[in-house]
Each structure stands twice: as structure tokens, then as C-alpha cells.
Design a protein around this nucleic acid. Structure first.
Lengths: 192, 192, 192, 192
DNA sequence: GAATAATCGAGACGGTACGTCCTGTCTTCAA
DNA sequence: TTGAAGACAGGACGTACCGTCTCGATTATTC
């Protein structure tokens, strides 16, 4: 129930797509999202500009893919449930997420910005980045409630919005997003 | 020893600046920030493009001014300290801030986005919009602690980041930012 | 020493070539030579683009073939020598040539234009279209000299250039090329 | 009833237009009309691409102007009426026109070709190049009739079409257009 | 009957050019 | 000196073709 289509035509060159993602990521890290043109990415990838348009509609779509190529595997698995207290689990989850931002904070900020002027991209970004992380925290907080580490009266969804909101708020305001912040957030959530 | 310069030449036309702010605000509300060009704003204001550049460096600067022309007077005064419980004060403050967004949520989102690719504008935006509101909430929470309505162990600054973060998070993710959210935020903050 | 090669492989599909010529002619008549792309012709013919390239190198080559598919049989046989005076023979020959242009004047003008930027095509066009018609007129004028209907001092080749030149000149300048022109040309040639 | 407009704005930079015409002419002579892109002309002129579009709509319009910049002054004045016989006058007029083609035959052929796919350009080309030369020859032939050097029964307009037609016909067929042709045409016209 | 070989439909690919749009600077005239 | 008007350099954008290429499927001839 899967493969969909395969009728004819020259097969898509996976290497070209890969090269584009790599070039995009590297250029964006190097010069900043806004200063990299579509043409520059294609050129750096040694690929025709149209080939880029064949796969992605916008620079944002490409960069979203490119960033996930690297970071997609991480941070989307709920942290280990083992004996560690939930507050500690939350802190280490946040610390790991934040650690990726040492190199990709500009792309991430740019993606959030790009989402503000393109609802389709906003939806894609939400599905692939926002919601998974939101759910992890929500689940973690529910487990904490089940284990009695968090008051049953708290609202896990609102708290999750607090957690990610604080993260976004610092990020988008140019303030540090680091291990210290992870600790402070976790502490405050469980301080209630 | 104040007015600096006044030697001659045609006086600056205050009406031109006003027309620009008005045109900017209207166009941005109508078509969305990204789809309005500087030239379009100047043209709609019946003003030369250079006249705009004489007053603002970027579209973001202009729109920031234009938005504040309308909303600047509101929401920056700490809510009334009167007998009302602090949770209620927080809720009503947030509700008022959110109520302006029925018409200006797109400009606000666009300004946050614009701040991501222009540090100078980010600083201006932070000074004029972000920090004042952040301080109001921080102060309010401190008062709540003083009045015993909030545990002294909580961190008002982190909580303020939670509050505004939740606001930004919902706003930038295309989710409703309304009175219900104001109530939920206030409730959760004081639930601890 | 003739048939060249015949070892194997799928035979060329004659129907495909035919479909291409038909589609080319129809599209060119409909939308004008310049507004028809190679891809559009192949697509209209229900044929792969490469199949077109297998047979013709350029759009001009294809259209040349396509136009001749229809009109090639006509106008290349010297007019009947019978009792008719040569002036009359010339007029009726030209009238017949011109009559085809009611539907194909745009393709013909486009082919002349195409020949200006492709020497190889210019040669092909010259061999298949220009020279045959030039020879017919030259021969006709020689016969007229032999029959005393045209002064022996005239130069048949120059006169033939006058005749076809006047035709091209009107055609390429957007002026009518019709029976009236045929009559006027023939009259002037024999007026000397 | 004259100056039209002059209200404000930066004046058009005449040097830019001049540089564009020069670059266009040189590049076209060097590489051929079809192989020169609009961008290449602008770049060679050291001018922004948009500046070119501000003045001309198409490459053909620009090249038409550029060619006339050089040749417009010549060949549009009727040849001297002095004692010279009209046949001689015609020959020398044609010889002069043809002499310009040693360097500009490709541009001229390209302009004729371009006229085939753009009625507006065809009209401009006709007004500025075709008709003036056609009239010169027509007038010259009328004078010849008045002076009894050409039979009053000949049709000067048809003969003029013969003359220019022969010229175009040779030119567009890649055959030499030189002094010998000028002589042959003049001789044949007056041979009648 | 299997191997070989050319063609076909389909469509991706590297390239080139196009015309449009926008930005920030400049140059003029008029107030 | 400011403002209105608008030209200019520069550069990105998305689109349209072109001619080539790479597939799998098809259809002949040759072994």
C-alpha cells in the first residue's frame, strides 16, 4: 500500500537533493538565512536551479528539510523513563534540544520567521518540528503527574506551552538558550 | 542649548510622516506585511520614497512606529492595584493586550519575524514592545508574592517568560490568542 | 551498397513522425511559429520529445517538412507550356503560389526568419523551397525570350530575382500577397 | 505644443542610452544578433538591465536604434539630381546602401527576422528603414520618367518593389549584396 | 526461445535567458 | 533644506525552453 507511482521518466537524482540540502545548511550557517539566495544554494550544490524548484517550493521548505536531515533523528524520542525524576528528565531533554542551537539557532529563527508569511510552510513546520516536541513534554508531564511528581491539578498542555514558549521567547529575543535555561525552566515547572 | 539645528530650508512636513504611518498600517492590515513594498506605502501616502527614508531606515521601523501610534498608549501601564486579586489583574492585563491582536496580529507576527534578520531592529522592538510588557508582568508577580498570593519560592522573571512565551508561542503557531488563553495562562501561573 | 543498416532493434514508428508534422503544422497555424514550443508540438502529437529530436534537429526543420508535406507537391512543376502567353503563365504560376499563403504565410515568414540564424537550415530551405521556384521562373522567362515574348536583352536571372524579391518584400513587410500582386508582377516584367 | 513633460525626477542619463546602443552594435557585429542576450548588452554597457528596459521593449528595438545611430544619416537623402543619368544615380544609391552591409548585414537580416514575430516592431522598422528607401527609389524613377529616361508606361512603385525585393532576396538567401548587384539591378530596371 | 538492439513514453537534469519586482541611492526642479 | 518625481545600479525571483540523459517497456532481428 505504498510506492505510489513509478511509470517512467528519468529517475530523480537523490544525490542532487542531498547536495542541495547540504549546501543549503552550510551556506545558511555561514552567512545567515536571509543572505543566501536560492541561486547561490543551487550553484554551491553544483545543481541546476530548476532542480531545486522541482523538489521544494521555497527556500524555507528546503532549509526545513536540511535542518531535519541533521537534527531530525534527535530530540524526538521521549527521554528515558528510568529511575530519573521527571524534573531531571525534562531538563536533560531541553538541554539536548538547546545544544543543537549552538550552530543552528539562526536557521531555526529564520524558519519561525518564514512561517509567519506562509501558512503552508507554517503547517509543515508545525507538524515536523513544533508538535512532536510539544507532545514529548506533555507526555512527560503526564507521567510526572501519574508518578506524583507533579500536582494533578496542573494542566500539562498549558505547562508545555510555558516550556516551549519560554524557549521561543528567549530565542527570538536574542537571549541565550543554553543549559542554564534548561535547568531554570525545569525547576520552575516543578516548583509549583 | 537644546534644539540643535535650525538654519534654514524647507521645514519638515509632519503631515508626510503621519500619512506614511497611516498608509503603512492600513496596507499591512489589508495585504499582509510581506506583500507591501516600501514603494507601495510611499505611493499610497502620496509621498516621495525618499521622504520615507528620511524618517525610517526600514519597513520594519516604520511599521513599528505605525503600530505603536495606535496601540502604544495602551497596555503599558501596570494594571490597577486595587483590591482585585493578582491572578485577576494578570488575566485582565493579558486580555487587553490580546484584544488588540484581532486586527494587528499579522503586523505583530511580521515584526517579530523582521527582528530575526536585523539586530538593530530587534533591539528597538525589544525596548519598545517586549521589555515594557515583560516588566509589567514581573512587577505584578512580585506584588503577588508580597501579598502572599504567589509562593515566594517562584521566580517572577521565569514566570514572566512563561507568560509571554506562551503568548508568543500561540501567536507564532497560528493558534488563537484570545480571552480564553488569558484566563488559562493566569490560572496556571497561580496554580503552582 | 544501399540500405545501410538493418541489424535489429525496434523499427522507427512512421506514425509518430506523421503525427509530429501534423501537430506542428496545426499548432503553428493556430498560434504562430514563435509561440509554439518544441515540447508543445511533441505533447500535442502524443509523442516523447526525444522522438522529435530523433528525426529533426530544430523546430524549423520540422516545420519545413510539415509545410512541404502539404504544399510540396504544388507549384514546383513548370506551368503548362500550351498556347497561353508567357505573361499569363507567369501570372497563374504566381497566383497559385500565393494562394497557399492564405493559411501558411506565417509559417513561411517564420521559416525565412529562422534561416537567418542557422546557415544549415538556410541551405535546406534554399534547396527545397527557394531554388526550385526560382528555376521555374527563370525557365519560363527563357522560353518567353525564345518565343519572342520577352526581349532577348533582358536577364532572366535578374528578372527572376525581381519577381521573387517583390514577393518576399511584400510578404515580409506585412503587405498583401494575392492575385492582384501576381498580375502586377507579371505585367511589369513583360512591360519592358 | 511641444516640450511635453518636464516636471521632476532625475533626468534620463543620455550616456547610458548611448553606451547601450554602442554595446549592442558591437556585440551584435561580433557574435551575431541571436547569440547576444539582453543581459550581455547591459553588462557590456556597464548599465543595469532595468535601464535598458526603461528605454526599449525588446532587443530588436534597441538594435534598430543602434544601427540607425550609425547609418541613419546616410542613404536617406535622394541622390544628387545633377547631370548624371538616372540609371547611374540608382546604381550609386544602391551601391552606397549595400556598402554599409559589409559590417551590418547580420544585424539587418536579424531585424527583418525579428519583424516577422512582432507586428509593432515590424511597423517601426518599416517606417524608419523600409519606406524611406522605397520612396527614394520611387521618386528617382518618377524623375527618370519625367526626363524621358524611363518609359512612362512602367510602374515606379512596382519597379521600386523589384529593386528592394531583389536586394532583400539576395540578402536573406545568403548571396552577395555588393556593387555588382547594384549595377545589375540598375541595368535591368532601365533595360526595359 | 533467448539474446540483442533500437525506439518509444516519460520526465529529470544542467543551462540560458527572460521580464518583473524591489531596494537604497542619486539627481533634478520647485516650494 | 525638504519634498515630489523618477532614473539608476544591483540583485533575486519564478518561469519557460532547450537539448541531453536515464529509466522501464516495447518490438523487431539474430542466434
Amino acid at each position: 500500500m505504498a510506492s505510489e507511482k513509478k511509470q517512467g521518466g528519468r529517475p530523480v537524482d537523490a544525490a542532487a537533493g542531498q547536495a542541495l540540502k547540504l549546501a543549503a545548511l552550510q551556506l545558511v550557517r555561514e552567512k545567515g538565512y536571509a543572505k543566501v539566495s536560492i541561486a547561490a544554494i543551487a550553484s554551491a550544490a553544483g545543481v541546476a536551479r530548476q532542480t531545486l524548484y522541482n523538489r521544494w517550493n521555497t527556500k524555507a521548505d528546503l532549509v526545513l528539510d536540511a535542518v531535519f536531515e541533521e537534527t531530525g533523528r534527535f530530540s524526538t524520542q521521549p527521554p528515558d523513563d528510568a529511575g530519573m525524576p521527571c524534573a531531571r528528565q525534562l531538563e536533560s531533554f531541553l538541554a539536548e534540544v538547546f545544544s543543537h542551537l549552538t550552530v543552528d539557532s539562526d536557521p531555526l529563527r529564520a524558519l519561525i520567521a518564514a512561517a509567519q508569511e506562509d501558512p503552508a510552510f507554517q503547517a509543515a513546520f508545525r507538524d515536523r518540528f513544533v508538535l512532536p516536541r510539544e507532545r514529548i513534554v506533555t507526555e512527560l508531564l503526564r507521567r510526572a503527574q501519574a508518578r506524583g511528581e507533579l500536582s494533578a491539578e496542573r494542566d500539562p498542555e498549558m505547562l508545555s506551552a510555558f516550556v516551549h514558549g519560554a524557549f521561543w521567547y528567549r530565542l527570538l529575543n536574542g537571549q541565550p538558550v543554553d543549559a542554564a535555561l534548561a535547568r531554570a525552566i525545569a525547576a520552575e515547572v516543578f516548583a509549583g
